[in-house]
Amino acid sequence: MRARPTWAALAASLSLIAVTSAPTSAAQPEPVAPPEFVSLTDVDPSILLDIRYVTPHNFTGKPVDGYQTPTCILTRPAAEAVQRAQQQFVAQGYSLKIYDCYRPQRAVDSFVAWANDLSDRQMEAEFYPRVDKTRLFADGYIAEQSGHSRGSTVDLTLVSLPPRAEQAYVPGQPLVDCAAPVSERFPDNSLDMGTGYDCFDTLSHTLDPRVQGDQLKNRLLLKDGLEKQGLQNYENEWWHFTYKPEPFPDTYFDFPVDPASLVSPR
């Protein structure tokens, strides 16, 4: 004859059923941008985009976490300042071209993880041939927070109008030093600024004295035109500008780079 279960056994069985049948929590929704953020293309569709971190053509060698679409998202005051600068540059025969805008904190975290992985030197020959990877934090090339995550910083350059067709990057293709002569490095269709974008090198400092001639002239053309509209240059990167005053000077956002992150129609 089968023994009857004890009350203790019944209680344990019921407890197990309660645990295994409890509904699992749904995945947390992605954060969205405050209404002060806009897509730059909605503000000025004439501005060219070359959003590098959604592609593998960047110093990590792969698309970066948080970049879901090749979109430039900025706070509205920053976007409108870039628009005003674009109008002035177009009158001179140039267009702005954007490499990066708002950057999610998760992307910055992925940069930190990449910098700590000293075995990953896939893109060294192009982006940091003269800087040992162990020095990226100490030399200020990688940090745990970025002004880009506050939404008013933009990386950009100038392109002559009409823009030339730009060769696509093919993963695995031979890499060329980002500070090589313009005829040798990756064929970006922008004006020659002396280095490529995201070149981890002191030659990227906006006013490095070794940069002269047309390269210096082009840097100053970009810098002066943007600063007239309230976009201040970061002296160590000729491509990096921040609108002042920033609407969110102390907030580091983490919504994805995607038009769906913008909660209101723009």
Rank of each mutant, 00 (worst) to 15 (best):
V112K: 08
W114M: 13
W114A: 14
N116T: 15
D117L: 10
D117E: 14
D120T: 12
D120N: 15
A125F: 02
Y128R: 00
R130N: 11
K133R: 14
K133Y: 07
T134A: 15
A138D: 15
A138W: 07
A138F: 06
D139E: 15
Y141D: 06
I142Q: 08
S146A: 11
G147A: 08
G147Y: 09
S149V: 11
V154L: 01
L156R: 09
S160F: 00
S160L: 11
P163Q: 12
A165F: 01
E166V: 11
E166N: 08
E166L: 06
A168L: 09
A168T: 03
G172W: 08
G172H: 01
L175H: 03
A180F: 05
A180D: 04
V182N: 03
V182K: 13
F186G: 04
P187A: 04
P187T: 14
D188K: 01
G196V: 08
G196W: 04
Y197V: 04
F200H: 09
D201A: 07
L203G: 03
H205F: 15
H205C: 05
T206V: 12
L207S: 12
D208C: 09
R210F: 00
Q212S: 12
Q212W: 12
D214S: 14
Q215T: 12
L216H: 06
L222E: 02
K223I: 06
L226T: 06
K228I: 05
K228Q: 15
Q229K: 01
G230F: 10
Q232P: 00
N233G: 02
E235K: 14
E237F: 15
W238H: 10
W238A: 06
W238Y: 15
W239P: 01
H240V: 10
H240E: 07
